[in-house]
Design a protein around this nucleic acid. Structure first.
Length: 421
RNA sequence: GGAGACGUCGCAUAGUCAGGUCUAGUGCACCACCCUGCUAAGGUGGAGUCCCCUCCGGGGGACCGAGGGUUCAAAUCCCUCCGUCUCCGCCA
């Protein structure tokens, strides 16, 4: 949710942001109207309520013979109050609907435009070249006995898979490397629930336009999360945070579930786009003024991880139209996937400024002792998808895969993954 | 799954049976000041969150786990839900 004060004082900023995203500008005016209506309704309810309270005192202290008459009078007042209260509640709800429909205010410097209008900030690492025909990650995975799509489909359907043998080990190794880096960076590890209540799901903004991406369990009214960001943001919901020891940083590990409803026939081969995968996610709560620095810090951790794994990558600054509704700016790190001849997203880090925190009612104390919404940020540190770039980049002609130095300690010193016979 | 107890403005508690000076009391912790030859004890005052209005002095409203209901009036009575605890049953 954006700052209602900003909507009132500086609606043009909100309009410009909506425009940059290609979102509805008209929503802004609708929200402003709803705000005015809400305030008027609240004022008239409170006036009547004050009157009723004063009158109630007269009734309770009145002599017995006058009481009946006073009560009759109070009855009429009560019905007016009830009506006014209903109007205030309705107006409040209408305003909340209107303002939550507005996306977060895009930060200055974010490229305008849609999905293809990103700006490449840098390309790092040499694109790998092979003197043989490289195999794709699934072929390698099958040779190594690491990935089993067929049995995944047999048991659970399309877009499900098994990681087995060195595949399973490799994923755990990547996660552990990420965790090690996160710990060094002051992140508290957190293994999170993956089933959450509706209010947490909507509070984090995942029940908006893309709600058909989300698995839902009607019998229990719970949602399966597509990222631990949901549980990490909900962790401090309704709390007033203490930043006297700096930002609060968490590294959340969880299995993630996505319906991939809109992805049609995209990435149907292998484990690039699957219904279930694992992810280590960074999450930070900071003061609003520290958010941009924290965002850069997260990006640096992500780049450090890709470098440690010897992957070629580029960093892009996502265009306004491609931002999630909560994000004010988003950087993606994309790794080179040899058999596709292009970069594919491995990580994403979003600065949600105070948008998410306002919805979830997460605040901190300012110097004057008042409360104010905090900023929240999230960023990927490792996922199952990384296996794709890792296997393809470090493959050898015989189908074996060289393990990057940084991962060896997590694989018992293993230097090479060998095809199984 | 069954039975029961409970949820009060940081923490701990009173208030709920018998609805109305509850404008929610008290203790601890906290802040300011006073007193005191110690960082102790004591005294006075302050202090929650959210929202609305404001001539920026202040004024008003909401919040007793959440949401409804009854009533002129609800922390208090009724219903639903959530959570915690105890006992029983069942089970990885």
């Amino acid at each position: 949710m954006i700052d209602p004060q900003l909507l009132r004082d500086n609606p043009d900023v909100v309009r410009r942001s909506q425009e940059a995203r290609g979102s509805s500008v008209e929503l802004v005016d609708r929200a402003i109207e709803a705000d005015a209506a809400r305030r008027a309704a609240i004022a008239s309810f409170e006036r009547l309520r004050a009157e009723q309270k004063a009158f109630g005192k007269t009734v309770s202290s009145a002599p017995r013979d006058e009481k009946a008459a006073l009560v009759a009078q109070a009855q009429e007042l009560a019905s007016n109050v009830k009506q006014a209260q209903q109007q205030a509640t309705d107006a409040e709800e209408a305003f909340t609907r209107a303002i939550t429909a507005i996306d977060n205010i895009v930060l200055d410097g974010v490229p305008a435009g849609g999905e293809d209008d990103y700006v490449v900030l840098r390309e790092v690492g040499g694109i790998p070249e092979f003197d043989f025909e490289p195999r794709d990650h699934l072929e390698l995975g099958e040779l190594l006995g690491a990935i089993d799509m067929a049995r995944g489909a047999k048991v659970s359907g399309a877009r499900f898979h098994y990681l087995r043998g060195v595949g399973a080990q490799l994923e755990l190794a990547i996660m552990n490397l990420g965790l090690q880096k996160a710990l060094a960076g002051g992140f508290v590890p957190l293994i999170t629930p993956t089933l959450v209540r509706p209010e947490i799901m909507s509070g984090t903004g995942f029940l908006g336009e893309h709600s058909d991406e989300v698995y839902y369990l009607p019998a229990d009214d719970l949602y399966l999360t597509g990222t631990s960001e949901v549980a990490l943001a909900g962790y401090h919901a309704d709390e007033i945070l203490d930043f006297s020891c700096g930002p609060l940083r968490y590294a959340g590990w969880s299995t993630c579930y996505r319906r991939e409803a809109g992805s049609g026939g995209k990435d149907t081969r292998g484990i690039i786009r699957v219904h279930q995968f694992n992810k280590l996610e960074m999450f930070a709560y900071t003061l609003p003024e520290d958010a941009e620095a924290e965002h850069q810090r997260m990006l640096a951790f992500q780049e450090e991880m890709l470098q440690a794994l010897g992957l070629a990558y580029r960093v892009i600054d996502t265009a306004a139209g491609d931002l999630g509704s909560s994000a004010a700016r988003k950087y993606d790190v994309e790794a080179w996937v040899p058999t596709q001849g292009r970069y594919r997203e491995l990580t994403s880090t979003s600065n949600c400024t105070t948008y998410q925190a306002r919805r979830l009612d997460i605040r901190s104390r300012t110097e004057t002792g008042k409360t104010a919404p905090v900023a929240t940020l999230n960023g990927t540190l490792a996922t199952t998808r990384w296996l794709v770039a890792l296997l393809e980049t470090h493959q050898n002609a015989d189908g074996s895969v060289t393990v990057p130095d940084a991962l060896r300690p997590f694989l018992g010193g293993l230097e090479r993954l060998e095809p199984i016979t």
